[in-house]
């Protein structure tokens, strides 16, 4: 890894900031050529659109019960069947998607931002600052999560913001460690040294020169974080934090469905499929983004 990546060096060092938009524009053009990424983007769009518009088109509400009907297999009236209280699974899945997508994306965004900045700063500066920051991460890893969550609720009541705090508190840690490891590996490379010698500020070096070079692992780990967050939301609702029934979320629907997989397969299969499809799309999109933003591979 000792060789200077000259192509990148020249792009990074000599490109004025104002022209940054053309880099994104190029990336967008490259992304559009990647069929899987486009598929991912379109699928995500459809799922999101369905979740936010679909419920208005359905004759059922997420809480309308039909106790006499109970859990019924899919048919013409209930396309995805009904749950044990006779509620339409499709409409519950769509409403649940709103919750899961919102929580998944925003909590991941929080974790991503904190993790990347924290890890980059620790890795870049090193020394005592790094030691202090990383021991703090170790401490955060070690605190008992259920106790932490219950305490949050005791002191702040039940509140949707707490959901993000609780998820954010655990999910940024590994991101920070990954970013730190990458930054430490890259910061001694020649093109960074060159940027330093040109007198660029540290902030500029971190954000314009280092981070673009470690986007790959960041994107991959982000696509791993989103499903973890969605499932964590189900555990938090077990502790009483998060959405309250009769509203549901994908995590809760899958958990409930898993317990009845033999009797009422549709309760697991449909939420599971939608969940998987979303993650596949996210991963395709993530891979595409990574490729599109990677200056080096485009010049291959």
């Amino acid at each position: 890894m000792s060789n200077v990546n000259t192509t990148f060096l020249s792009t990074a060092l000599h490109q004025p900031i104002e022209k940054g938009s053309s880099l994104w524009h190029d990336a967008w053009l490259r992304l559009r050529k990647n069929r899987l990424a486009v598929f991912g983007l379109v699928a995500l769009g459809i799922i999101a659109l369905a979740c936010f518009i679909g419920p208005f088109l359905s004759p059922y509400g997420y809480e309308d019960q039909n106790l006499e009907l109970g859990a019924a297999a899919p048919d013409a009236k209930h396309w995805l069947g009904t749950d044990t209280l006779g509620r339409d699974l499709l409409v519950r899945l769509l409403y649940g998607g709103r919750v899961s997508i919102a929580v998944g994306l925003s909590a991941t965004f929080v974790a991503l931002t904190i993790g990347v900045v924290y890890g980059a700063v620790a890795g870049f500066f090193g020394g005592k600052r790094d030691a202090f920051m990383m021991r703090t991460v170790d401490i955060m890893y070690s605190l008992p999560f259920p106790i932490f969550v219950i305490l949050l609720m005791v002191f702040f009541g039940r509140n949707i913001i707490l959901l993000f705090v609780a998820i954010g508190a655990v999910e940024w840690l590994t991101m920070a460690r990954i970013v730190r490891g990458q930054v430490m590996a890259i910061k001694k490379m020649e093109f960074i040294e060159a940027a330093r010698s040109l007198g660029f500020g540290r902030r500029r070096i971190i954000f314009r020169h280092i981070l673009p070079n470690i986007l790959g692992p960041i994107i991959v780990y982000t696509t791993l974080t989103i499903p973890a967050v969605m499932l964590l939301e189900a555990f938090l609702s077990f502790l009483g934090l998060g959405v309250q029934p009769p509203m549901s979320s994908w995590g809760v629907l899958i958990k409930d469905g898993a317990e009845k997989m033999e009797e009422f397969w549709w309760l697991l299969v449909f939420p599971g499929t939608v969940f998987s499809l979303t993650l596949f799309s996210l991963n395709f999109l993530g891979d595409g983004l990574r490729d599109a933003l990677d200056v080096r591979s485009s010049k291959d």
């Binding site: 809480e63 019960q65 106790l67 044990t84 209280l85 259920p146 219950i150 609720m153 039940r158 609702s237 077990f238 502790l239 009483g240 309250q244 029934p245 009769p246």
Partner: peptide
């Protein structure tokens, strides 16, 4: 599930809105 069913019965029969709140056992 029982709470969800009873919540609906109260809504349908009395037109009142009762919220559901779950807590971990010792809380």
């Amino acid at each position: 599930v029982i709470a969800e069913a009873i919540q609906q019965m109260w809504r349908r029969n009395l037109n009142i809105d009762i919220g559901l709140r779950n807590e971990e056992w010792k809380v």
